[in-house]
């Protein structure tokens, strides 16, 4: 190339490089930061099943410490630190409740505190007071909804294209059937309640009524009455996350409905599956040991 044409070429090229560099710099400066922290990609669209509904199948688990206490809680020693040291101690955690606190009716708060004091006391000697004492979790009773969602165990969603979606929980092999667009009301109360589902966009909404009044929300003794009504929302947020929200309503115990919210994580281990946590044998000595035949003196 002749010098005459080279110089302009080089100038243009240089200008281009300069332009490129300044463009790159300015675009780095001007570009929005990549999503960090706790923002899910906006408008995530989950893969679909054949019926066009979001596919929620998988093994899921919550990693909040809500099972210790839905509200803010510091780390705490376990119930018998003189026996177990740091084993069984509870981690600290931030509240999963919108507005931070459960809006108890003033007269209902005392029972929550009494529950906590009595969480490991059991007395099944009288049928009529069989359920009066003790955290149902410690007795290996099915935890109800929403507690089953944030127990420190995985659960599995089994979703086909029928009107039934099964939720299977590792804790005590509890299950519940979510019946889609179902009219029938709960015929009686059940430990895992009566679940009826519907879709709102990409969110699975589950309406839960008919829960046994004896379940607790957590180990802190937070509780409800037989008027409990829970509405859950499961929204896919990424290939590996689902956003969980539950609105809890019980006019006998709370002054207004309140809401909990936290992500669920897809368990990603190869060939992950639920194992068994059949805890009944772990509780029999606690519940029934005192009725044993004593050795003859």
């Amino acid at each position: 190339m002749s010098l005459r044409r080279t110089i302009p070429f080089l100038c243009v090229a240089a200008a281009g490089v300069v332009a490129l560099v300044s463009f790159a710099s300015s675009s780095l400066i001007g570009q929005a930061r990549a999503p960090t922290g706790t923002q899910f990609p906006a408008a995530y669209r989950a893969p679909r099943l054949a019926d066009g509904r979001p596919d929620l199948n998988g093994v899921w688990q919550a990693f909040v410490t809500a099972n210790w206490n839905l509200e803010d809680h510091d780390a705490q020693p376990g119930p018998h630190p003189e026996l177990t040291g740091a084993y069984g101690a509870g981690p600290g955690g931030q509240s999963v409740i919108e507005g931070n606190e459960i809006p108890y009716r003033p007269e209902a708060l005392a029972k929550r505190n009494a529950n906590f004091q009595n969480r490991l006391k059991v007395d099944v000697s009288n049928d009529k007071t069989w359920h009066a004492l003790g955290d149902p979790e410690a007795k290996c009773y099915m935890p109800g909804v929403p507690r089953a969602t944030y127990m420190p165990f995985p659960f599995q969603i089994v979703q086909g294209t029928s009107q039934y979606v099964l939720f299977a929980y590792e804790f005590t092999s509890a299950t519940r059937i979510v019946r889609m667009n179902w009219q029938q009301e709960a015929p009686t109360d059940a430990w895992m309640g009566w679940s009826r589902g519907r879709w709102e966009g990409d969110t699975l909404v589950v309406d839960v009524t008919g829960q046994r009044e004896e379940t607790w929300f957590d180990r802190a003794g937070n509780y409800h009455s037989d008027a409990l009504h829970v509405v859950e929302r499961y929204t896919p947020a990424s290939p590996y996350h689902m956003l969980y929200e539950a609105t809890i309503e019980d006019p006998k115990v709370f002054t207004r409905p309140w809401k909990i919210r936290f992500p669920l994580y897809r368990r990603m281990e190869t060939n992950v599956q639920l194992l068994e946590f059949k805890c009944v044998p772990f509780t029999e000595e606690l519940l029934f040991g005192k009725f044993r035949k004593q050795a003859a003196r």
Partner: peptide, 30 residues
């Protein structure tokens, strides 16, 4: 009750509320 989802067949007996979630993808046993 039998439930089916891609890659699984699930059998839920009424007593006692457990579900047998059966992978169909040829993975080994535990």
């Amino acid at each position: 009750q039998i439930f089916q989802s891609p890659g699984y067949v699930t059998i839920a007996p009424e007593m006692i509320h457990s579900a047998r979630i059966i992978p169909m993808d040829g993975r080994p046993h535990l």
